[in-house]
Amino acid sequence: MNNRSNHSISKMIEEKASNRGMTKFAEGLMPKVFLTCALISILTTVGIVLTLIFETFSFFQEVQVAEFITSSDWYPLHGDPSYGIRPLITGTLMIAAIAMLIAIPIGLASAIFLSEYASDKTRRMVKPILEVLAGIPTIVYGFFALTFVTPLLQNIIPGLSIYNALSPGIVVGIMIIPMVASLSEDAMSAVPQSMREGAFALGSTRFEVAVKVVLPAALSGIIASFVLAVSRAIGETMIVTVAGGSNPTTSMDVTSAVQTMTAYIVQVTLGDAGYGTTEYYSIYAVGMTLFIFTLVMNVIAHIISKRFREVY
């Protein structure tokens, strides 16, 4: 009890303190180790950007930049190859547009239901199911599009070819519903309860509160979720590769085969384009275009949602 007379522990600690090289060593080393880990993420970005720039540069030594941007023909395997990116962009945007036609109304309606109508219990039940939907691998969605949605659509639209833009577009849309729903719901849940109460007190119905009060207040967050969803749709690979076909075209016909930027990259990789050929470099030029598209979308979404946070 009387520790003045028996100072053993504090003495021991003092003695140990003089030869605690390991502790000191770890104390100095660990921050550097963790900083190195953090720098890897920066290196990854730098690696992506440099890779794309260098290999795209190699591509443009053999193909005119003007041709890449303005030509409307993409025939890399032709005897007289033509590298105009427009057909691939058309295919990509067409798929993205169909996907958004599905994902925006359904995702937003689900968000309104979850945020404004559903009880806590319902929400706790529905949200994990949406998470499951979001967690299904894209190859599974691709399989679903090819073997279920396409035949189903062929019953409705007789002229639909086996590879087409419509089916993968719809399925990409289904894949990103959870993203739109959950991000929009976050934005709507952030709207202060007092704003709802004010509207209810004036005799508004639940629908009017949702559409006239909550929706406008959460608008920037909701729009940011749409933009992020478009970015996801543009970068989606397996669904369009499996069910979209490999027909680069500027035609807007959703019932026939198309090719997206991502599907083209996969097609070349699976083929036997040798290392160092123009065809090989072309996947980097297309990858670069894809990267810029998604980066711009992500930055726009970031700016919009930043503004949204400042409101409250």
Binding site: S41, I42, T44, L228, S231, T237, I265, I283, F291
Partner: peptide, 25 residues
């Protein structure tokens, strides 16, 4: 702040672009 922003941007990069990175590096 840059590291943090970089991480959230990386999350938005399409997976196929990571594939191009892996192929090259």
């Amino acid at each position: 702040g840059l590291i943090q922003m970089n991480i959230s941007n990386l999350a938005g990069v399409p997976s196929i672009v990571f594939g191009l990175l892996g192929l090259t590096i």
